[in-house]
């Protein structure tokens, strides 16, 4: 009976604990359930990443399971402070390795993918009120199409599809306008901040 109580207790802990705590718990106690619980939190994302690279649902599913196995081994050895980005990197590497090992099938990473992997924390910057005025001036400095797309996306909160419909451009172009606009915005705002300092 005390087993049941113990397990229930464990489950309760697991559902509320942070990623970091679960990682530490797994490292000290080595309980696979801990890791399972942690992995479940991101499994759907991992599946998405696998789908993106493998393109085939069946292959992607195997990939998700294999990544979990890799995780079991690797997490014991590596010091992981921030689990989510680490897992993302692990998943991506796993997929790329898998693709590379498939002979005769070239790995084509289109430019879009490369763009997306840039990690720009624009939200954090935007949320600071003192930056709002500088941002407005920066938005105005953007090239026409980027300015329009950024305004619609962030100020009017339109989704890619709506913007594409309204401006009559391809949805992928809209996406790249927004991505490039964000990058330009960031550069512009960093410049302004430097000038002020």
């Amino acid at each position: 009976m005390d087993n049941f109580i113990g397990l229930a207790f464990l489950k309760k802990i697991l559902s509320t604990e942070s990623d970091h705590d679960l990682v530490q718990l797994y490292k000290t106690a080595g309980n696979i359930d801990t890791l399972g619980e942690l992995y479940q939190r991101y499994m759907e994302l991992v599946y998405g990443v696998c789908l993106k690279y493998m393109k085939e649902p069946e292959e992607a599913k195997d990939c998700v399971i294999n990544i979990f196995e890799e995780l079991v081994m690797k997490l014991k050895k590596h010091e992981v402070d921030n689990f989510k980005p680490w897992l993302y990197q692990l998943a991506k590497n796993h997929c790329l390795m898998k693709l590379r090992s498939k002979k005769g099938r070239p790995v084509n990473i289109d430019i879009d993918v490369v763009h997306l992997s840039e990690n720009i924390h624009l939200d954090d910057v935007m949320e600071k009120e003192m930056h709002l005025t500088t941002m407005e001036s920066c938005i105005e400095q953007l090239p026409g199409e980027q300015k329009q797309a950024i305004k619609m996306f962030y100020l009017d909160e339109k989704c890619y599809r709506e913007i594409a419909e309204k401006t009559g451009t391809d949805i992928n172009k809209v996406r790249s306008f927004i991505q490039n606009g964000r990058r330009n915005l960031k550069i512009c705002m960093e410049k302004q901040a430097l000038q002020k300092a």
């Binding site: 998405g48 789908l51 897992l87 997306l116 992997s117 909160e157 339109k158 890619y160």
Partner: peptide
């Protein structure tokens, strides 16, 4: 549409989410 916008925004902040979102095109 507003939910799509929110999801797109979140995806722009989180490459993990972005990749995953893209990947699900292939799911049936």
């Amino acid at each position: 549409d507003n939910e799509m916008n929110a999801l797109e925004k979140a995806a722009l902040e989180d490459p993990f989410l972005e990749d995953a979102l893209e990947g699900y095109v292939h799911a049936h």
